[in-house]
């Protein structure tokens, strides 16, 4: 019962566009880069940085659900856990920011290895429940361990000087650093999805027994994908800790795990850009709702319900579907 979730929703993750579209695509990429570079002059840099962190988080999550058919309901553990480690390394140990983030990422990778090894022993719905339960354990640990600061979290984390050279307290410097982190993570995901490894993952998603009978040791592929996804989620979480100079319980709750599911579902599972769009939408929505009296969880929950019932391809998936239908 490995997920038919994605195959039903999206015919192909990689757009099978012909060469004539290559130019359009390069143009689009350049346009996107241009927007990203110009964004801090048009919007609040902190807002855009938040979007980038969550976009990376959602892309990491999507690597599992969209390309391997594994629904993790515990990704907050990696995101929030890495945030704690990064914050601790930067604040208490006084490490250089990139190194702090690296440590956070490594801790997420390690956690991903342990959680993944346990969770891939079951499939489908059980996989989701196991990852959820394990991440809840991380939540309780974060609540109780001495170094996490309990309810307060780790506050006042110094951003420091990147490589000892660039002062990250300058908003623009911080912004371009975050952008670079995001692009590096996104490029890694892009490479992974289009690599032979990514093809095997898709084969597992479509039909795991067949992949097994073809001689693939699917467990290993799933575990590696899980560790990679956890690491990237950690990278996002560590970066976020520096942006907000804060690591807190919010980032390890199961509601956070749910939020990243929503970003991906809303943007389009199994599409490369979907999680980015979804993250932007959800973060913007959060900012908007903060200024109103509407209860945020109710709105988020309602979007969830609507997405699942009516809109399973997500924004990007829907657009891609229409474009494909028009072209054929």
């Amino acid at each position: 019962m490995t997920s038919k979730i994605s195959s039903a929703v999206l015919p192909a993750a990689a757009p099978h566009t012909a060469d004539r579209d290559r130019g359009t695509r390069i143009a689009l990429i350049l346009l996107g880069l241009g927007v990203a570079v110009a964004a801090p002059f048009l919007l609040y840099p902190v807002f855009v940085m938040k979007v980038l962190c969550f976009a990376l988080f959602a892309c990491a999550f999507n690597l599992l659900i969209g390309f391997a058919g594994l629904l993790s309901f515990g990704h907050a553990a990696f995101f929030g856990g890495a945030a704690y480690v990064t914050a601790h390394a930067a604040k208490v140990w006084g490490l250089e920011p990139a190194l702090s983030i690296l440590l956070g990422t490594a801790s997420a990778a390690l956690m991903g290895l342990v959680f993944g090894a346990l969770a891939i022993r079951r499939q489908g719905i059980y996989f989701a429940m196991i990852t959820l339960a394990l991440s809840q354990m991380v939540f309780f640990l974060a609540l109780q361990l001495p170094f996490t600061g309990g309810e307060d979290g780790i506050q006042g984390v110094p951003r420091g000087r990147l490589f000892g050279l660039f002062d990250l307290n300058q908003p623009l410097v911080m912004y371009y650093f975050v952008l670079a982190v995001f692009l590096a993570g996104f490029a890694l995901i892009w490479r992974t999805v289009h690599s032979p490894f990514g093809q095997v993952l898709k084969a597992i998603r479509e039909n795991e027994p067949r992949a097994v009978s073809l001689g693939y040791r699917t467990e290993r592929y799933k575990l590696l994908a899980f560790v990679l996804s956890a690491s990237l989620a950690g990278l996002a979480g560590g970066t976020k800790a520096l942006v907000f100079q804060l690591a807190s319980l919010t980032d390890v709750t199961w509601q956070m795990s749910g939020e990243v599911v929503l970003m991906t579902l809303l943007g389009g599972m199994g599409t490369l850009l979907g999680p980015v769009v979804g993250a932007g939408f959800v973060v913007a929505l959060g900012n908007y709702l903060a200024a109103t009296s509407l209860p945020v969880p109710v709105v988020i929950g309602a979007i969830f319900v609507v997405c699942v019932l009516l809109f399973r391809r997500g924004i990007v998936g829907e657009i891609a579907h229409h474009l494909r239908r028009r072209s054929t």
């Binding site: 719905i125 309602a302 969830f304 319900v305 699942v308 019932l309």
Partner: peptide
């Protein structure tokens, strides 16, 4: 896919 039932009821729980 059965996972959609999980996602739907998750949304209901949030609401």
């Amino acid at each position: 896919d059965h996972l959609y039932g999980l996602l739907l009821t998750f949304g209901v729980a949030l609401i």
